[in-house]
Design a protein around this nucleic acid. Structure first.
Lengths: 344, 344
DNA sequence: CTAGGGTACGTAAGCGCTTACGTTGCCGGT
DNA sequence: ACCGGCAACGTAAGCGCTTACGTACCCTAG
């Protein structure tokens, strides 16, 4: 069957304007070497014809890509979806398209997705989610990104250092510190931490902040119970179970992110532990639902959407010799899930 | 400065294997016309060299794309992020990449993004989110998609009919019906609906289900208060305010999606209206946080992730003459936000 | 023994752009 | 009057693939 009329090509524009291909191309890409009037005429004709350059041909010829690859752990985790929203917003403003992949929190799979994106010749790679304490885990990704940048690619990380690329980094340690302070101010002495997987830098940093707050008040780090699980709702549930069973004296739980806190609250509800009367709970990130939980969650606010935008902004800027680190603000948001330690 | 070694090209593979470009291409794309041994050797060499075909060159030459464009209203809305997760999952399994755009719930902007995706020559377009009652609103998108399909593109819609493409459709009417039934069973007589923007088919369908349940019990549709706002948390807050102020006799609120229900609950909390003692609240969708709200939300469960997968599956299958419609299941999930109507 | 057909492979023409390099014409400086 | 230089535009060579078409060879049927 006769194929419907195809999209107009650059030659069509050039013919209509009675100029050469080269001139049309220069006019439409805003390059120099065309007089203003001719350029205007060409652009006008392109608009009338509904011409849009074929990005495959353009990329093939020029080598410059206009798509950004974004790697997140899980798109339906609110922390990541807010970051993604920021990236996509700014990308749209810049006329860029974003290709998104999920790593499913698996470092091997993440590496595979990273390779896939690079093989697909994206121009920019943005990688979010915690990195790994073990340098060997990161080194493959690091090498991949270095090679990518050597070939002219741009990259940035979100909430992840040690990747050798520009990064936007929340002050996880200060956040952990603030949470612990807040709980101690309320009189809590037996604090437990529901932590994500051991080996994640985010976990280590937030935990370090908590410990240093305890130390600063003369408490022994041994006073702190740390239960490792993972950064999901069910991870939070499991951690809470363990804390309740093995450390019944606990009066406050620090979940190292909000999604875990949701799981913690869920378990406390099931076990009929009143929050905050019997147990205070705090989270980290301030995802948008944190305010709607039962009870509303005290947490550290991170500007996720902004972080996504900032990361893309960094990647868009000309590269510097040394990777840049852009800190983000953070803020303790006190809501209803924390209260004075119960009297015993 | 001397550019670092570039990625291997098809010619490199061909040379190493001492075959022609054509043969190498045939072997790697699994086409016929190569003996099994030669094909194996070529594939083996490609693997050793770390060869991955340049998708830009491939697409330019063959015309076939391997990227799918996904349009959602808002990626950080849990309803859409769960759909996106499903699409991305399946796409990854199929070796496809997903380009994602947000329409920001603006039909004009959505159309623009649709055009952008098509201009970018994606092979598959998936469009999610409610359509518009007014046929003129949809006709431009419809025409765009028809032209796209004529050029060999594939498309599918999620939760949206009347676009002339394959669609996966929840039974919104039956869901609304079930919610109203549930509330009437609990003795509620003064029911209000916190609806999304008037003019959305999803709103109309869910509302129709509610009305028909009332009618079936011999109630007049006039008994039903409908407040239009929009499908966001703040939309839910606004609707609840209005219901509380103008219809104080209301004992149950049907929010037409969970995100609005979150806003409704938030307002009720602020106004100190006990749920469900004084007011029952239901939502629609069963996003994953619905169970963690205060109180946990009675709602209609839709398999969002599955819907995303199904839509991509539909688009991947050979096109049929008439657009297919794939229904999805739904289920009333009763939680703590609904209870018997208060005695007066 | 030969014609016909099928299989395995090579040759080369694009796909729709960008861009290095050429060409033309006009300007000002001496 | 002449020349160097620059701006504006054209010519054509790719970018890295796919694929229509051509060629060599082998096998089978008559």
């Amino acid at each position: 069957m006769p194929r419907a009329r195809q999209r107009p090509r650059l030659v069509d524009v050039a013919e209509h304007a009675a100029v050469s291909l080269a001139t049309a191309s220069r006019a439409l890409t805003g390059r120099t070497g065309v007089s203003a009037e001719v350029a205007d005429r060409i652009r006008q004709i392109a608009r009338e014809l509904g011409y849009v350059a074929n990005p495959y041909a353009r990329t093939l010829a020029s080598g410059a890509t206009s798509t950004v690859g974004l790697i997140v752990h899980q798109v339906d985790d609110p922390y990541f979806s807010e970051i993604a929203a920021g990236v996509i917003q700014l990308a749209a403003e810049q006329g860029l398209l974003v290709q998104i992949c999920q790593s499913g929190r698996d470092p091997d799979y993440e590496l595979q997705e990273l390779r896939h994106l690079i093989a697909q010749r994206v121009g920019i790679v943005l990688i979010s989610g915690s990195g790994y304490d073990d340098p060997r885990m990161e080194s493959a990704a690091r090498a991949e990104l270095a090679a990518f940048q050597d070939h002219g690619g741009r990259a940035a990380a979100i909430g992840r250092h040690a990747l050798g690329v520009d990064a936007v980094l929340p002050d996880n340690e200060a956040g952990g510190y603030a949470l612990a302070q807040h709980l101690m101010d309320l009189g809590h002495r037996r604090i437990a931490v529901a932590a994500g997987s051991a080996g994640l830098t985010t976990v280590a940093d937030r935990l370090a902040g908590v410990s240093s707050a305890l130390r600063q008040r003369g408490r022994s780090p041994a006073d702190l119970t740390v239960v490792h699980s993972d950064f999901t709702r069910s991870g939070g549930r499991a951690a809470a179970e363990q804390i309740l069973n093995e450390h019944p004296e606990t009066t406050a739980i620090i979940a190292l992110n909000d999604v875990m806190a949701m799981g913690v609250l869920s378990t406390l509800r099931t076990r009929r532990v009143p929050v905050p009367a019997r147990m205070s709970v705090v989270g980290f990130d301030d995802v948008s639902v944190a305010a709607d939980l039962a009870p509303s969650l005290t947490t550290i606010r991170l500007p996720m959407t902004e972080m996504g935008r900032t990361a893309l902004t960094l990647a868009l800027k000309p590269r510097t010799t040394r990777p840049r680190r852009r800190p983000t603000g953070h803020l303790l948001v006190v809501r209803d899930s924390t209260g004075p330690a119960p009297r015993t």
